[in-house]
Design a protein around this nucleic acid. Structure first.
Length: 749
DNA sequence: GACCTGCTGCGGCATG
């Protein structure tokens, strides 16, 4: 250890701690980060595959710097996307910091206000806080901001990759910027992240306008041996009796023994569950079925199998609508060592929190992205010498006369194979950094007014949209348009001295605690049984008394729905359908679509699929050739025509907008753009396509003039139309690629 | 036919 130059840079008391912990060497990232951090004059990103060691890589040298002042009178501000992570880190850091006589302050919604008051009396040591809690501080204690953060040595941002590309990430950038402006200097920023391929995106995110100056510490991770098997399944075509439209048609008492729906009879999920049951029992594993609804289905199938075979249950559900207690039970089952446990989960178990190593990751259906698949697989093969194991399950519907192109080409299986191949090639989707997130500009303007008790328009513009500011690039005239719209909405008003203040409506929003989060959430009902809260359900599908429901892996009968208290009371009963949860659609990257097409054009066997999956793939390849899709881009489907682009969703959506401009009703649909024929023939549609290829590129306003329903983010409703269109397009449309595709594939030149 | 995250100040009351 004494040979380590980084070790010698650390404070003596920290060296002593390292000895007493029995560490024999510093990890690669810790070794390389230390000299960059002890000087406290660089922005640094520490990127490594797992969380282990990253926090120490930042904190050991940062605390060394803090200890240079005796007694400690400076501050390290650690910002985390999860309360659970703050609680974890508090446990780890407090043990070390107690010996150093450095106070550690957790600060989030579950922390008592007395702790917060004590911190504010002497803001020194380490503050562990969420972005929302920082927002609340700026809003409610605006006059104290400069003094509270005056002696901040570092911002440490954990799980940096989880912030990039979202409203919350934009908010974080703005908060850091506003604090730096309040204290009148730059504060070194340290980002902790999963490896992100091209780290320039992350660097530009961490320090907008100065990305190239950010120092990168990318930890070389040992290559883990991968074992992959994808199994194919075919759902038989069955003629089902029509279902009653309303649950009220049923007499609740008369069908006690009848399953309330036929989802549980579906044979294929049962076969998949049987295979999972055989392969996963006896070890710790994660099963990802892609939706909360399917988590419920598979958990119930698997726990029922344990029950039927008189063996202890090993399968536990985990998703965001389950209560904290139920989720904690699942996490505890994974952590304890006595009994094996498998979690059936959504991406709640993808991030941060420590659940120990798992043997195998099962993926049912194609994952939402290659990046997410990679993150999921990173949970397996963490012990030295053990491989990471991926078990894929691909379920296709039987092909009938009415089957669409997606079934005929076996696109689910093709996508799963293509994504797995990209994973093996070490490619994954880059983070989306070009989003304007003007919704968050509205929030930050209202927050800035609260912080300062009013702000001049020019000052607000300089702070939020000026050079290197989070919304840099927005023109002054657009900012003026925004202000005008916000005063129409009564979110703001301008007094006679030119000061911007909250309007009647703005006042109400800012004074409610829900203001601090930058992201929107749907209204939810609590699901309650006699003894405890099971979780929450969004109001998309309201349950009625007498209905049966599958939740937390068990079946329930709805006793009462209390609208005033937003509560649904249930009791245990046999039979039940998984509830509906709201949700948009995942977005597929162009590179994935191209890999899918290459897969359909190939005649090579895929090494990591079983016989059935290879059969499905061959079926898809056969239909691809039969339909002549190697050369054709247009496919007549009767009512509509399919334009097969094999581009990403952002390109296909932009193509659909371009066609809309020329009078065609079109919508992106998987690898295609679906065009309604109306009264046109295929030749007529081809003629319009040629017009589109030869025409000038329209403005965004022209292209989205007829588009409705562009509001996606929390404050989008308050934006003027033009800015809403730009904000939407920045995230969802790739117009350049769309124009390039149309000109290359359809153009007459 | 997708997923996840977060949240204040204060009034009113009981208790020591």
């Amino acid at each position: 250890m004494s040979e380590s130059s980084a070790f010698n840079l650390l404070d003596e008391r920290i060296q002593h701690y390292i000895w007493s912990e029995g560490w024999t060497e510093l990890r690669d990232a810790q070794e390389r980060a230390a000299p960059l951090i002890v000087t406290a004059d660089h922005d640094v990103i520490i990127a490594a595959a797992t969380a282990a060691g990253k926090t120490e890589a930042a904190f050991l040298p940062a605390l060394t710097r803090l200890l240079q002042h005796d007694p400690v009178d400076e501050l390290i501000v650690y910002i985390s996307p999860l309360k659970a992570l703050i609680n974890d880190q508090f446990g780890r850091l407090d043990r070390l910091c107690e010996q150093l006589d450095v106070p550690v302050w957790p600060w989030h919604g579950d922390i008592s206000s007395s702790t917060k008051t004590r911190f504010l009396k002497g803001p020194k040591g380490v503050l562990l806080i969420t972005p929302e809690a920082v927002e609340a501080m700026l809003c409610n204690r605006g006059t104290a901001v400069a003094a509270t953060f005056a002696r901040t040595l570092f911002f440490v941002i954990d799980e940096l990759h989880a912030f990039i590309g979202s409203e919350r990430g934009k908010q974080l950038q703005s908060l850091l910027h506003r604090i730096e402006r309040a204290v009148g200097r730059q504060i070194p920023r340290i980002g902790l992240s999963a490896t992100l391929g091209d780290m320039t995106f992350a660097a530009n995110f961490l320090r907008p306008g100065h990305g190239p100056a950010v120092h990168l510490v990318e930890s070389t991770s040992d290559a883990v041996h991968l074992k992959i098997l994808i199994k194919g399944y075919e759902e038989p075509a069955v003629v089902r009796a029509p279902q009653p439209l309303s649950a009220q048609d049923d007499e609740a008492e008369s069908d006690e023994d009848e399953p309330a729906n036929n989802e549980m009879d579906a044979s294929t999920p049962r076969y998949v569950a049987q295979h999972l049951f055989q392969m996963l029992r006896g070890s710790n594993n994660l099963v990802f079925p892609n939706s909360r609804r399917q988590v419920e289905v598979y958990t119930h199938l698997l726990t029922s199998m344990c029950h039927e075979q008189h063996v202890p249950n090993e399968f536990w559900p985990h998703h965001g609508s389950l209560s904290k207690e139920i989720r904690a039970d699942t996490e505890a089952a994974l952590k304890q060592q006595e009994q094996p446990a498998t979690a059936v989960c959504t991406n709640t178990l993808e991030l941060g929190i420590d659940i120990g190593a798992v043997k195998c990751v099962a993926q049912i259906g194609p994952p939402p992205s290659v990046a997410s698949l990679r993150q999921r697989l990173g949970r397996s093969g963490r012990r030295k010498g053990e491989p990471a194991i991926l078990r894929g399950y691909s379920i296709e519907d039987a092909i009938t006369d009415g089957s669409g192109i997606g079934d005929q080409l076996r696109l689910g299986t093709v996508q799963m194979v293509a994504m797995t191949q990209l994973l093996l090639e070490k490619w994954f989707e880059p983070p989306v950094t070009q989003g304007l997130h003007l919704s968050t500009l509205v929030q930050q303007l209202l927050s800035l007014i609260a912080q300062r008790g009013g702000v001049l328009a020019a000052d607000a513009y300089a702070m939020l949209c000026g050079r290197h500011a989070p919304f840099a690039g927005l023109a002054p005239k657009d900012f003026k348009l925004l202000l005008r719209q916000l005063s129409v909405n009564e979110l703001i008003l301008q007094d006679s001295s030119g000061l911007l203040l909250h309007g009647r409506v703005g006042e109400k929003f800012v004074n409610h605690y829900t203001f601090y989060a930058a992201f929107a959430t749907e209204e939810e009902y609590r699901l309650v049984t006699s003894s405890k809260t099971l979780g929450t359900l969004p109001v998309v599908q309201l349950l009625t008394a007498g209905q049966r429901i599958l939740f937390a892996g068990r079946t329930w009968l709805v006793m009462e729905v209390n609208e005033a208290e937003k509560t649904i009371f249930v009791k245990r009963a046999r039979g039940g359908a998984p509830p509906m949860f709201a949700g948009g659609v995942g977005r597929v990257h162009t590179r994935v679509r191209q890999a899918m097409r290459a897969q359909l054009e190939s005649d090579q066997p895929v090494p990591f699929v079983d016989l059935k999956a290879q059969g499905l793939l061959n079926e898809g390849r056969g239909n691809y050739r039969r339909l002549g899709l190697g050369t054709r881009v247009l496919l007549d489907q009767g009512q509509h025509v399919l334009l097969l682009t094999w581009m990403g969703d952002d390109v296909n959506e932009a193509i659909a907008c371009l066609l809309g401009q020329h009078g065609l009703a079109a919508a992106a649909d998987g690898p295609c753009v679906e065009i309604q024929k109306g009264k046109r023939s295929v030749a007529g549609i081809e003629a319009v396509l040629r017009q589109v290829a030869d025409a000038e590129v329209p403005t965004l306003d022209a292209m989205l003039a007829a588009a409705k329903n562009l509001e996606r983010e929390k404050w989008d409703w308050a934006l003027p139309q033009g800015l809403l269109r730009r904000s939407y397009a920045s995230l969802h449309l790739d117009l350049d690629a769309a124009v390039r595709w149309v000109r290359a594939e359809i153009g007459t030149e």
